[in-house]
Design a protein around this nucleic acid. Structure first.
Lengths: 245, 245
DNA sequence: CGCATATTTGAATTCTTTCAATCAACGTGG
DNA sequence: CCACGTTGATTGAAAGAATTCAAATATGCG
């Protein structure tokens, strides 16, 4: 169950067998299961536990008073839901399960103890947080300066890389539980427009999207079109390359 | 010179006289002066020092390979330019001076020593970082789900609050060195469109903008229209209210 | 005064949304 | 096994928002 988390942290820094054991121990602790649509965290809630997604996808989002909805981040297995425990008092965003999701909840004290006991893990989680911030910045670029088609291609590329890093891709495809409505909420458009853009991408043989399986037909071409540059995903350390180019 | 920084950190937690002295000491250290347009940090640079803006405005931004430019954040006096020193190896964004800017550069070891010596300051800087992340999230909402007019109003509201917190507002106005071109780069639009929206806002007597002085004529009305909710600026602690409503 | 930098304007075009309706897929109960 | 309800995907037409390109004005500064 902790596979994705361990794989994710390993991108940043080597994890010893002992640290791995500690992570597995942790992950076997108090886990909660959410079903699609469930609110894992509500805006305005107090931040009282460290939560990490073990399986499934979730969505960090904000709403405007008039109801408009914007996804602020996608949480994949291994991702920390909320940073700043012990510092941030109340949540400025909410988190929603996009399907069946398993989340471990760790008491702040236990988490602090884990980090105190292992400088490596402390470093790994710090990297995780910085990566999350970098993601957020890239999303701002996406929302602000890419058009609908580029945004979608960029999102698909980013997800490919992130899922690849935790071993959740098969060749050039992956399981993507996002409905068109949610895709729209991620890239800041309407579902109608997403639908039309998706059709164009399929027509041009850039992607296939059947059921929930997304296949990228020519990844490098697609990344070029999206002006996708994966470096924002690998800030961790200078030498940390990825398995893919 | 360290006034803004101290004021900013005080929002999060009380700062003792001793901590204040340490901050002033630090600020009197190695300061660098940049002129308008200067690159304070370049994308791809190694992250080798903690930098804090002491005076003037700067802009955190990213570029697409084809040259499109998107502001990712605005750095006001007291803001930390780059987080994650010691964890992040290379910058995924750049920082540009928007006018004359003073920045202190602090060696990682010196900064670590400061935080080690004062849990309060450690906490304050942690809050600062979380606030920055919250800003980033709100910007994503702004870019994704508000229209041009709302984005502009929201930006003006946010800046009012942030500047107010560091004592840089006068009544309902403040000095805003952003040209229309930069406003456009912040809210993800063209300068032409920003121009037209600004004219409408002036016509409707919502704002005045002469020279570089921005005056907000009816702040609450404006915040309502922008669906602005300042809570994302005050995550620090439950009891930390602001001077304004 | 005059250059350089910013702002403003207009018209045409492109991109995206809106609104409403239709279609397709799927699981349920009868 | 099939009618039915639900959810998600697709379509069309029209309206609306924002961009583009170029040119015209302002404005600030030396």
């Amino acid at each position: 169950m902790a596979e994705a988390l361990i794989a994710k942290l390993r991108q940043f820094t080597p994890i010893s067998a002992r640290d791995e054991r500690a992570l597995r121990e942790l992950s076997s602790g108090h886990a909660r299961l959410y079903e699609a649509g469930a609110e894992i965290v509500r805006e305005g809630d107090a931040l009282e536990a460290v939560r990490i997604v073990l399986s499934g996808w979730a969505c960090r989002y904000k709403r405007l008073p008039d109801g408009r909805y914007q996804a602020i981040g996608l949480l994949l297995p291994g991702d920390v839901c909320t940073h700043g425990v012990g510092v941030v008092a109340t949540m400025d965003y909410a988190i929603e399960a996009l399907g069946a999701v398993t989340v471990i909840e760790i008491a702040p004290a236990a988490f602090a103890a884990l980090l105190d006991g292992s400088p490596t893990l402390a470093r790994a989680f710090a990297c995780e947080e910085q990566q999350c911030a970098a993601l957020q910045r890239e999303w701002a670029l996406n929302l602000g300066r890419r058009d609908a088609r580029e945004r979608l291609l960029h999102l698909f590329s980013e997800l490919f890389h992130r899922l690849h890093d935790i071993g959740l891709t098969q060749d050039n495809s992956y399981d993507c539980p996002l409905k068109q409505e949610m895709l729209a909420d991620v890239i800041g458009m309407t579902s109608v427009h997403v639908n039309r853009v998706l059709q164009a991408l399929r027509r041009e043989k850039l992607i296939e999207l059947r059921g929930r399986q997304l296949t990228i037909l020519d990844r490098l071409a697609l990344e070029r079109m999206a002006q996708f540059n994966p470096s924002y995903l690998r800030l961790g350390s200078v030498d940390a390359g990825s398995g893919i180019d």
